[in-house]
Design a protein around this nucleic acid. Structure first.
Lengths: 132, 132
DNA sequence: GCGATGCTACGGTATATGTAGTAGCATTTA
DNA sequence: TAAATGCTACTACATATACCGTAGCATCGC
């Protein structure tokens, strides 16, 4: 698991892989909305770079098409992003949530809902290595 | 106010400007912790790029030293970052906070504290253009 | 006034990123 | 099996980033 940073475009492709699961370069290309379409080889390059960075791995060949699948977990990846973002908030998650509240991105109601929803999940996570 | 994205290194410098306020390139350089020290001209380059991007502006010259100061607001900048990050959480701030909770980055106690602390602040912000 | 010192302007290198073209092998199909 | 089609591997190239060196003007101390 390489810990190298992924670029915006790379992340976009990885996102598609999380959404579609194991698939080929062409499938990824075709899954992109019209306004994000780029050349086949562009996607290919990004996929290769993702592979080099350890974010994707090639699984098998169907016909002459190489299939790839995510090699890193989405929630884990997100956690990394959050960690990075937190650095810019002086490492204070509270400041981060404050920001969400102040900008109206999240409401008190949301927080309340989370409070009742999360504890169970958190406890479960401590027990077994549960994913999303 | 340019809306262009800032790189990691650029952001680091801007952070220092927020911390120190109006100051020179050398002051920024010297404010960096030992392990982050780079050449004077490296900082200079980053400062120039920040100026081009509209994140810093030069204010005046003291002796032969040019002074710069932040041209964008820290909390505004942070909000932008959060917005970007949210895209990767499917636009759901709740998922983001869930992540914080699940990774133990923030606690329920924190959330509770925020709930009682923030509303006032938010209201105040609506009234006057208050900064952190 | 002149040398010492320091800052600015500008140029430069190496790697990362975004985007794409081409050659040629593999597969499929008539 | 030969033509058509598609995928892979490789190359290419412009811009962005990270980092730094040097020349030379400005300022200061004497």
């Amino acid at each position: 698991m390489s810990r190298r940073r992924l670029s915006k475009a790379e992340t976009r492709i990885l996102e598609q892989y999380w959404k579609l699961g194991t698939c080929s370069v062409r499938e990824i290309l075709e899954s992109l909305p019209e306004d994000e379409r780029v050349a086949y080889t562009t996607v290919q390059t990004l996929v290769y770079r993702l592979e080099q960075k350890g974010a994707l791995r090639r699984v098998k060949k169907i016909g002459n098409a190489q299939l790839f699948e995510p090699a890193i977990d989405q929630s884990e990846f997100r956690s990394g992003l959050v960690r990075d973002l937190l650095d810019l908030f002086g490492g204070s998650p509270r400041l981060l949530v404050s920001n969400l509240l102040e900008t109206g991105t999240i409401t008190l109601k949301d927080l309340k809902a989370l409070q009742s929803a999360q504890p169970r999940k958190a406890a479960r996570n401590r027990g077994e290595k549960g994913d999303e």
